[in-house]
Write a protein that binds this DNA or RNA. Structure first.
Lengths: 204, 204, 204, 204
DNA sequence: CATGAATGAGAGTTCATTCAT
DNA sequence: GATGAATGAACTCTCATTCAT
């Protein structure tokens, strides 16, 4: 009992051990899922003693939160519509592809994230915030396009942003995580692009 | 899951007990989620002896599968586009509303279904089949509309059906299960209708 | 998880198992003390499975409380002054001897009781109540003797009852539990009697 | 306990660290009890590195023994009858009050001492010796009073000393440590004085 | 069939002590 | 000496499933 476990290590060596645990945790979570992961798996994978885990993390949940937090940061570099500029359809397309790449890179963890989100309220909240921030940025882009006359003004920008994000997100989940269908990825991406652009009425 | 030991009760009394267990299971699953549900909770709720559970179901998973199977039947009475006919936009609209109502009615179980789908392969497969069947029907409708010139022929009917189903499904999940947003339901439904119709290029 | 553990068993067989656990618990507590007792020791001693312990008791504390409660009942059949009547000095003497016998019979558990009382607030309260009830009875006897002119009226009956109970109780504890001194028991009892009688000014 | 590794610091700085650990240990023990005290609590409180604890003390028990040893010294400056002289009743009274004050000052540690005495044999022995030495002094006083004709000669001086010490000690423990009773302290002290004096038959 | 007791392999967490720096 | 990380044996409590009645 160092009493406030999970504190940042004070030495170089401690920092290394902590990183090893984080990396091992991610790998084991990806391999076995959150529920089937034992703290012992993580420590064995990181080649540290069982007890060392609790030197840096108060629980299995805590290490997961941190792994997921890093992943969210990686994922949200690639928003639906990252920046202003001409050719909105091309931008949508590019954003979708970027998100697809990020999703593919992190597909295994995305599966575990969905798992944990179904029973851990704290984590649900974390994910909700990330989603809201991301949707907010997309909504801003849509609203700008509406002011520029590129998107019909009868569309609810905020809601459309959320709904379209759900569309892309869930499609990629079923595709990449649950492997719901073999036919070519390009067909999926093409459809996501087309439907998004047409749903918003963007000139293509 | 239909040939496990003791599944089909032979007597009238046995059939009653089995039904009580199924009803109790659904209520307890809704209340606590799959992971937090104990077999004892189910039997207590059903006012049945602990051991009787295993007379009718080989495991906690088995009773869940059966509860979920019944629910899927209820949900898929309301497909994206239930039947042929004129006014496709109105049909999309009606289908979305019907699905929304069904989802709302079963929201708690939908949450648990998502939960179990994240770790139980057998259940994943069951859900995948339901999804595929449902998407197939939607794809048929879209294809018909394409032959009738109501939907552009450059759209991949099957993929569009899946992607749009993901959009609606996920939006309702975040809305009804995770309560992600306070603003009015009507805004959400309106957006789902509009985006679907425009994505498909249907006349409105 | 039968959810409200520690419930009374519903069958004859369950009642037997529960009794075996209680008896085993007492013996193991006496042998090793509360802190050094493991649930596994108790179940092994009772020849039941580890998990069966938790069918009947929610924790080690709970089984201890019940063991102690039974012991308190046994001990308080022998109060400082059990009943009214003539010859108070003889009554004091008889009460002291009776308490001594009870203490000797239960000496090992008295040691454990003292142990648990030093850290478990719930148990402290239980013991406080027993002590208060016992002191109350002694105080009544002293007050009666005061009304009969056998004890000086300047004595605080209630406080004297508590103080003299402490004297007897603690002396027996040090004697029988901590074995503080070999010389004859009779010397101790004689001293307890004499000091009690003279402290109260009773005719001897 | 004085020849364990690293007990006697060789440098000035080491002596200071050791004192800080001792002081911190006492405070933490008082705050949380022996069982709930972690070595980490002590070092944190002393603002000393975790490992430094083991530079000066071989174990948690060892530091407690030393804290308790100092406390015993403080307590036994105030014996039942500290010195010879006239007016024995007044002396008893004064000794009781002095002991009360000392007890009150150290009440929290007295609680922990009782706790440790219930499971640590080495500490039990230490306390037994202190008690024996103290009782010995009281017994000497009583014997002297017997030779002076102030106390009846049928009293067993040594045993009476022990029994009366138990009475005072236990009453103060229940009063000050377990807070067994709200009514005024003066009532308790008065009763202790009176009963002691009368039990011994001292002229008052 | 019904009942409820019995089972025991885990799993997470603790923390005194040791050790490398 | 001082520092704080590393260790891992314990220990409690859980609960799906089996079994005796």
């Amino acid at each position: 009992m160092r009493d406030e476990p999970g504190v940042q290590p004070l030495t170089e060596r401690g920092a290394r051990t902590r990183e090893r645990l984080l990396a091992a945790a991610r790998e084991v979570f990806e391999e076995r899922g959150f529920l089937e992961t034992r703290v012992a798996h993580i420590t064995r994978h990181a080649r540290v003693a069982y007890g060392s885990f609790y030197t840096y993390f108060p629980s299995k949940e805590a290490v997961f939160l941190e792994v997921a937090d890093r992943l969210f940061a990686d994922m949200t570099d690639h928003d639906l519509v990252p920046s202003a500029g001409p050719e909105p359809a091309a931008r949508v397309r590019r954003a979708n592809r970027a998100y697809y790449e990020a999703y593919r890179r992190n597909a295994k963890m995305m599966a575990i994230i969905e798992q944990v989100a179904t029973f851990n309220a704290e984590f649900q909240e974390l994910r909700r915030k990330h989603r809201a921030a991301s949707a907010e940025r997309s909504a801003k882009a849509i609203a700008r396009w509406q002011r520029e006359g590129l998107v019909p003004s009868d569309i609810d920008a905020e809601m459309a942003a959320r709904v379209l994000a759900s569309m892309v997100d869930r499609s990629l989940y079923l595709w990449l995580v649950q492997g719901n269908d073999p036919p070519g990825t390009e067909r999926l991406l093409e459809t996501l692009d087309t439907l998004t652009v047409r749903a918003l009425g963007l000139p293509s």
